[in-house]
Each structure stands twice: as C-alpha cells, then as structure tokens.
Amino acid sequence: MNISELPRVLTLTPVQEAFDDRPIAGAYTSDLLSDVMARASADYVLITIQAHRNTVAVASMLNLAAIIICNDRPIPDDMVEAAREERIALHVSGQTQFQVSGILYAALGSKG
C-alpha cells in the first residue's frame, strides 16, 4: 500500500500533501517521541496525538512515510509548514489511535 492510498482506507483529512509517494513499510503508534525514535523504522506511518513541529523533526530523521494526528487535535501552522519542507504527508483523523491502528493493521497485513 502506498502513502497516497491512506485517505482511501482511513477516515482522515489530508493536511499536507506534498510528499514523494512510495510503499508504506509498516506503522508505529506512540505519543512518546523518544520511543518513536528508538523503534519506528523507515517508511513507517506514525500514529500519534503529538501535534507540534518536533514530531515532524522526528519523522524526518527516521525517513517516516506519513504522520497521522488522531482525535482531531488541532495542528499548528508551523507544523504544517515543517511537514511541507520535509515532504512528509500529514493527516488528521477524528478517530482514536486505537481505531486508526486497527484499520491500518488490517490494511497493511500486520506489518510493523
């Protein structure tokens, strides 16, 4: 499944869509960015509620595929700007981390 297909399988609103489309390798769900740094792999989707610019910095260091912000958390402008600069897809969803993870787990065939 490619990054561009995320809106097809999940209920979400794209916030930043300037990215290089490629296959998703897996996903990681955590609100602890230090934990994400230790465990998420390249081309993973990050599912979190940490809506701030440092999340984009973490995603960029790890070459993550996309960030999904759950629970309709408001996304500050500087986060969108950073995601655009780093070419990381950014989405917001009204669903919880559990729901998004569950749907993605099924769609990706339990990778990650």
Partner: peptide, 15 residues
C-alpha cells in the same frame, strides 16, 4: 508533555 524526556536520549544514541 511534548513527548520527550522519557530517559531514552542517551541509551538510543548509544544503540
């Protein structure tokens, strides 16, 4: 609350 400061910085860097 920003998602940092969990005591993983130095262990991660070492790993």
């Amino acid at each position: 609350s920003l998602g940092f400061g969990a005591g993983l910085n130095l262990p991660n860097a070492r790993k």
